[in-house]
Amino acid sequence: MQLATRAVVTAALAAAVAVAGYVGGLTLTIASALLALVFALGWPALVGLPFRVGSSVVVAIGGIGSVIVVHLTDAQPYLRFLPLVLAGAVLLSFLNELVRRDGRERLVESVSGTVAGTLVAVASAGWVATGRTPGGEPLVVVGALALAVGSVVVALHLARWLGAVVTSVAAAAAGAFGGALLPDITVRPGLLLGLAVGVLVATLHALFDQLPSLERRWPSLAAVTLPVTVTGTLVYVVGRVLVG
């Protein structure tokens, strides 16, 4: 999948999250769970893990499980049970290695890659936590809007450092624009949230854009969902600091 195509798909996913955040409730939960599932299906192939089926299962359980747990948590802080989900997923990653029958080559790489993927998938629960926080729906929309704009801008053919700056500025401008339009949020929090999202998008682009596995379908799907998934917890944390 070409860079321009991946940028468009990521922007479309971010727009879908913005719509789900505006609607709120179960819609946002389902969208977050689907993000975690698609990411889990492609992550092992993206980073070249040796036992892809087992790693996908572990990452999917961790991501979808975290979304369900946050959805069912009845009071703030909504992320307080995530360490338990993550701990269970880490145990599953070791169990995943025990069921391997291929000589368990690259054992450390397999475990660390599975746990890293689980951390990313678990981050999708941040969208649900933000949406459930009083006044959190505008944060979801602003964060997703900044992500959509940053994902498109990062695909421009610019020098690496210039592209990172332009992406960050564009995402910050999109966040400020959203903050000016939506209720319960102002320009300043929107600007800072957009800047944080822009920096994240530029960083992920620098980390993953040159991977040869992106020429295949499933790794590309993981790559396009990764920024949307990670941004969930970023929006929640930044929103808690800036808005409360």
Rank of each mutant, 00 (worst) to 15 (best):
S32L: 05
F39V: 07
L41W: 06
P44F: 01
A20E: 01
S32D: 05
L26M: 14
L35K: 00
T29I: 09
V9A: 12
L35Q: 00
P44G: 06
V9C: 10
T5P: 11
V38W: 01
L3N: 14
G24F: 12
Q2V: 12
A31N: 04
G21Q: 09
T5N: 10
V23W: 11
V47A: 10
V47W: 04
A16I: 02
V19D: 04
Y22G: 13
G21P: 05
F51L: 14
G25K: 12
R6E: 13
A14R: 06
A12W: 09
L37T: 07
G42Y: 08
Q2L: 13
A16E: 06
A4V: 14
L3Q: 15
G25N: 14
A45I: 04
A12C: 12
F51M: 12
L35Y: 08
L35E: 03
I30P: 03
M1V: 11
L34K: 07
A15C: 11
T27Q: 07
L3V: 15
A20P: 00
V38A: 04
T5R: 13
I30D: 04
V9T: 11
A4L: 15
T10M: 08
L28V: 08
A14F: 02
V38C: 00
P50V: 06
A15R: 02
L35V: 02
V17P: 01
L28D: 04
A4E: 15
W43M: 01
T29Q: 12
G42C: 04
T27C: 07
V47L: 11
T10E: 03
P44Q: 09
A40L: 05
A4K: 13
A4P: 10
Q2M: 13
V47S: 10
L3S: 15
A15Y: 07
A36S: 02
M1L: 09
G42R: 07
V38S: 02
A4G: 14
F39R: 06
T5G: 15
V9N: 11
R6I: 11
G25W: 12
L37S: 02
T5W: 10
L41S: 00
A16H: 00
L13P: 11
A14L: 04
A33L: 09
A7V: 10
L34A: 10
Q2T: 14
T5L: 15
A15G: 15
A18K: 07
P44Y: 08
L37I: 03
L49G: 06
A45S: 09
G24D: 14
V19T: 06
T5F: 11
T5I: 15
R6G: 15
T27K: 03
V8M: 12
V47H: 09
T5D: 12
T29M: 14
G21S: 08
V23Q: 09
L26K: 09
S32I: 04
P44W: 05
L49H: 05
L28N: 00
A20Y: 01
L28E: 01
A20N: 07
G42E: 00
F51G: 11
Y22I: 12
S32Q: 00
G21C: 04
L3C: 12
A16R: 06
P44V: 12
L35C: 00
F39Y: 01
A45C: 02
T29V: 15
V9L: 15
V17I: 09
Q2N: 15
F39I: 01
A20H: 07
G21R: 05
W43A: 01
L49A: 03
L34T: 03
A33I: 01
A14Q: 08
A20S: 05
